[in-house]
Design a protein around this nucleic acid. Structure first.
Lengths: 105, 105
DNA sequence: CAATATGTTACCAAATTTGTGAACTTATTT
DNA sequence: AAATAAGTTCACAAATTTGGTAACATATTG
């Protein structure tokens, strides 16, 4: 993938000019980022999904679903909190003001 | 409440020396802070719970429950996201490494 | 390549959250 | 003080998430 990095960035930038694409992206981006972080934290400890399942008293299939970006589930806050807790992290929830969308007219 | 502010701070500090109290506090503090922020954002716009209910297609009783610190519910991530969205905010979820508890021995 | 470990997906049951109306309490306005 | 607005709580139904098993897919190891 190394060779096409600039191409992909350009593609992404161009795609995001489409308001529908932008809306969908903004909606999903936070969840994507969160799951990316969760997986990174787990791997940093050398844990498998099954390790997490044991720590949390559940099954690896649940962990897979929780980490899956494709899953159409929106997990409970407490589910994410506990996942983080067994890895030695605590959840910090913040609210960021939206950037005002520049007027087109 | 003005007069007893220092007293309350001292009380809180003392209470948190109890490990059980501390554990309960750490577990609830993030949710408390989040709800406090949500209410503050809503009021900053001059919205009532019923206004929020209308914006979100639900009823004021649901909003009350969502904002309630007493509620034993852990809401879905998407519920908090949408609440924030109609107020012009987006959710930012971070994971903070726990401070290592100082060894007692 | 074979064997094993890890991760994914589908399905159903169980648990929990959310929608809703109603009765109630508390705060604000007239 | 009375009237209205705002917020709370309860109970139940509806919707969604989570637990669990199994079969499959993909990666890693021997």
């Amino acid at each position: 993938m190394a060779d096409q990095r600039p191409t992909f960035k350009a593609f992404k930038k161009e795609a995001l000019r489409n308001p529908d694409v932008k809306a969908a992206y903004d909606e999903l981006a936070p969840a994507y980022a969160m799951k990316r972080d969760m997986i990174a934290m787990r791997k940093a400890k050398g844990f498998t999904q099954e390790d997490m399942a044991n720590l949390l008293g559940t099954r690896k299939s649940s962990i897979s679903r929780l980490e899956s970006v494709n899953s159409e589930n929106s997990p409970r806050l407490s589910t994410v909190e506990e996942y983080a807790r067994v890895l030695g992290y605590r959840l910090k929830i913040e609210f960021e003001k939206n950037k005002p969308s520049p007027k087109i007219n």
